[in-house]
Structures are given as structure tokens and as C-alpha cells.
Design a binder for these strands. Structure first.
Length: 433
RNA sequence: GUGGGUGUAGCUCAGUUGGUUAGAGCACCAGAUUGUGGCUCUGGGGGCCGAGGGUUCAAGUCCCUUCACUCACCCCA
């Protein structure tokens, strides 16, 4: 019985890891352009924080989707099921608010939820996200959306559709929820079990239900956008105005609600048609109550999270290619014991000099070594046999042109570096460099 | 947790109404070329046919169980 990666997890192998680096690099570039600094928080947090942050009534908690465990010391810890609450915790713990009225951070990292895996949904997945603290200005909401659009564009994705809604605030939502309940009540006994529970806990989610009976029952429900208080209405209008200013298109979606309890006002979701059932590639919104809920003073916030795996699927659906990983520059080929020794020395010099170089360790024939050199994509084969060793030279073969020349051993590295600087830009760099 | 689909070589897949020793392409290794890659040709290594049980003279094939993967529901990035 061989071991397998745990259900809902996956290995990112060398053949695709450069795509991940590409995506993360683009995300960080865009964040930098918008003034967001990167924050790295722990993979697990105090369970209490996540319960508080996510809300005890959220489906994540109710469905026991959290990886919660007691550590040997008896503390209850949880692998983070989302990125915002940990960021808020760090924001408060380190008093980032003291450095100015506005704090902007971004993060990249793994997220864990115990769910049944399917396409675009894993038990461990990775999210890129941003949080903007301290602004009630609706232009901040628009910036967050704008950053999301810019990020997707930088990956070559253009096929997303932005859904926008407002979920109100503690002033206007309760009244709306009551109206919604009143509207639903007559049909309640026909609805699914989930919705019966939602009716009590979070009636907004009924609008999101896919069961036929529930859809029918809520079809004519009053839209929340008409029930917003003056402040929320103004805010939503302000956000839309700024999006118009930025030329960002979106569709109003009064059924767009949030699974997490802390959201207020603006809610948005970027959907992509190429992904199957799990089509949200980026989603977020405003959470003006969360910081206070987590023990801070009333600080507004707005942000988004975006799944890396789903974005990669979206790129694939749009046939976007990432730059190929940079290959080796030189492959050292030796024949015989004496040449082997010199070859290892040359290899060492090349690497020390900054040339990406490798050598065969399988004791293969020259032909096989040539083949290997070719397979690695190396531009040069550095060939060393008896003749070369005796003459203090190497045979430098250009594998692209098949031309080869004799080069003094001491000059191999310099020769390769010189010729390389001539074709800068030929090889695209995949990620960090 | 609920339903559907699929499990045969490293990968993608054939495998007839059950019938000898389970195949192909790609990949890998070697040779053709005793010091030269890509193209071509020849040869080779690789399989508890997901696992367990059953039916049968005979099971990759039929039946049951189980596991894994996968898609969808729920929920979400």
C-alpha cells in the first residue's frame, strides 16, 4: 500500500510549479502598485478567533468544516479556513492602526476546509487576498475591486463577470431580514431543511438556495437594494460611481449574499464561466464590524480573497500560457575517469560563476549524456574526453546551432557568460529571479 | 453527509458473447553510430488488470463488498 496525498490536497510538481510562481509574482506586483504590503500570518490560529471572526452561525462552523485540534499543551487550534480573521488579529496585535488611518495589506497562503473535494474545490487550497483597513470611503471598495480586475488582467484573464450587491448594515439589515422572513413565512413548510434553518439564522442565504421550491418561494422577494438605509444606499451609489469612473463593468445581483457573518455593505464576486460549478475566482466585500468583533475599536475594512487553483483553471480555460521555466545553460559531458574529474571541476566553476549547469550521475554513455543535455534544454554541451584533458581545453558545443569549438578550460565560464549576455530576453523568466 | 461516473504499464488508453503467455502510443533504457543530442529504425525493461470475496473447467471481462479517484449537490476561493 503506497501512500497518497491526503484527500483534497495535491502536489504541485516541478512541471507546473513555475505557473504558481508566475501567479504569485503577478499578484505581488499588482499589490505593490496599489500600495499594499505583504503580511504573513500563521497557518493555524486560536480556534476562538476563527469562531468569533467567521461567526458561529456560518456554514463553515455549523457543517464542521474546520480542521480543529488540540495541541499537546491542550490549546484548541484551527488551520485557517479563510484569510481575513487572521489578518485582523495581526492588525490588532501589532497595532498597525497606529501607523496611520489607513492600513493596506496583502497575503498569499494555504486555506483549509474539510469539504468534499470537486473540481476547483480542495481541502487545502491557496488564496491571494488583500485587506484595506480604516476607510469608509466607497472609493476604497472600488479600489479593492479595481485591484482584483488588474490582477486578473495581469494573468491574461478577461472572461470574468463581476457580480455586485450590498448586504446592508446592522442598522438596515434587521428590518430587511424581517421583511424577508415575513415574505417567506407562507411558503416556509415547503422549503428545504437548510432553508428552514436559514430562516432563523440567516434568511439572506435563502435567496442563494438552488432547490427548486426555495427558488420559487423567494423569486419575488423584495430586493435588499431597495431596503438599504440612507447611509448604505449612499455608500453603494458611491461605490458604483467610482467603478464607472474606472470603467469597470459589473452586474447587480441582489441574490449575491455572503457565507460569512461579518460582511456589511458592498459584496462582490468575480465569476468565471470556464470553471464548472465552482466558478467564483475572487470574492470579497466590506466588513465594518469585524475588527470590533475581534476586540479592536470600530475600524472599517474591505478586501477580497482569490483562489490560486481556480485562477490557474481559469487561465487554462482561456488558453493563457505562462512563461516557461528557465532551463539549464550548460551540461557537462565526460568520457572516462580523468575527464570526469576535470568535468566536475569545470561544473563547479560554472556554477560558482553563475551559470546554470549540470552533469550526469547515472554513469551513462556519451550518447546518453548528449541526449540528457538536449532534454534539459541546455544551450551548451561542455564536452570533455581524453583529448580535451590532454590539451587543457573543452569542446563547447552549441546545441541550438550544432556548432562546436575548442575553448581553453579556464575560459569556459567567461565564454558562456559572454555569449549569454548577448541573448538576454530570449528566455522568459517564470517567476522570481 | 447525498447521488452519478471511472479504476488495466510512469502517462493516455485498447482489450470481442468470459477462452492460451494482457496489448498499443508516448516516456524510459540499450543498440544501429567503440567521442556527439534532436529525425529514423531495431531491441529491452517494466502490470498483484485498485483491493477482498463469489460464480465458472476458465474472470481484466459476470456478481457482491470495499477502497480510491472524479463530477455534481451542500458550501465556498
Amino acid at each position: 500500500m503506497r501512500f497518497q496525498a491526503p484527500r483534497g490536497t495535491h502536489d504541485v510538481l516541478p512541471g507546473v510549479s513555475f505557473q504558481w510562481r508566475f501567479v504569485e509574482k503577478k499578484f505581488r506586483e499588482v499589490c505593490r502598485r496599489f500600495g499594499y504590503g505583504e503580511i504573513r500570518t500563521p497557518t493555524f490560529e486560536d480556534t476562538g478567533l476563527l469562531l468569533r471572526g467567521i461567526g458561529e452561525s456560518s456554514e463553515i462552523v455549523v457543517d464542521k468544516q474546520m480542521y480543529t485540534f488540540d495541541d499537546p499543551g491542550g490549546d484548541s487550534l484551527t488551520l485557517r479556513p479563510e484569510g481575513t480573521a487572521p489578518t485582523v488579529r495581526a492588525f490588532l496585535e501589532h497595532s498597525l492602526y497606529a501607523q496611520g488611518p489607513i492600513t493596506k495589506v496583502c497575503y498569499v497562503g494555504p486555506i483549509f476546509r474539510y469539504e468534499r473535494p470537486q473540481s476547483g474545490r480542495l481541502r487545502e487550497h491557496h488564496q491571494c487576498g488583500i485587506e484595506l483597513f480604516g476607510a469608509t470611503d466607497p472609493a476604497a471598495d472600488a479600489e479593492v475591486i479595481q485591484l482584483g480586475v488588474t490582477y486578473l488582467r495581469s494573468l491574461g484573464i478577461t472572461g470574468e463577470e463581476i457580480h455586485l450587491n450590498s448586504v446592508g448594515c446592522p442598522l438596515c439589515r434587521p428590518a430587511y431580514l424581517q421583511r424577508l422572513r415575513d415574505f417567506i413565512t407562507p411558503s416556509l413548510d415547503r422549503m428545504c431543511g437548510n432553508c428552514k434553518r436559514r430562516y432563523e439564522v440567516n434568511p439572506l442565504r435563502i435567496l442563494d438556495c438552488k432547490v427548486e421550491e426555495c427558488r420559487k418561494a423567494s423569486a419575488e422577494a423584495p430586493p435588499i437594494l431597495e431596503a438599504l438605509c440612507e447611509e448604505c444606499g449612499d455608500h453603494f451609489r458611491g461605490c458604483r460611481d467610482t467603478l464607472d469612473l474606472y470603467g469597470i463593468e459589473y452586474v447587480l445581483d441582489s441574490r449575491l449574499v455572503r457565507g460569512l457573518d461579518y460582511y456589511t455593505k458592498t459584496a462582490f464576486e468575480f465569476l468565471h464561466a470556464g470553471l464548472g460549478a465552482q466558478s467564483a475566482v475572487l470574492s470579497g466585500g466590506r466588513y465594518d464590524g469585524l475588527v470590533e468583533e475581534c476586540g479592536g475599536s470600530g475600524t472599517p475594512g474591505v478586501g477580497f480573497g482569490s483562489g490560486v487553483e481556480r485562477l490557474l483553471l481559469a487561465m487554462e480555460a482561456e488558453n493563457r500560457t505562462t512563461p516557461q521555466p528557465e532551463s539549464l545553460t550548460a551540461f557537462v559531458i565526460t568520457l572516462g575517469e580523468a575527464a570526469r574529474k576535470v568535468g566536475l571541476t569545470v561544473l563547479n566553476e560554472l556554477r560558482a560563476g553563475g551559470v546554470a549547469a549540470d552533469i550526469d550521475y547515472a554513469g551513462r554513455s556519451m550518447k546518453a549524456q548528449m541526449k540528457e543535455a538536449n532534454r534539459t534544454g541546455a544551450k551548451y554541451a561542455v564536452i570533455l574526453g581524453e583529448d580535451e584533458v590532454n590539451q587543457g581545453v573543452v569542446t563547447l558545443k552549441n546545441l541550438r546551432t550544432s556548432e562546436q569549438e575548442s575553448v581553453q578550460r579556464q575560459e569556459v565560464c567567461a565564454t558562456i557568460l559572454t555569449s549569454q549576455s548577448g541573448d538576454r530576453g530570449v528566455n522568459n523568466e517564470p517567476g522570481d529571479s
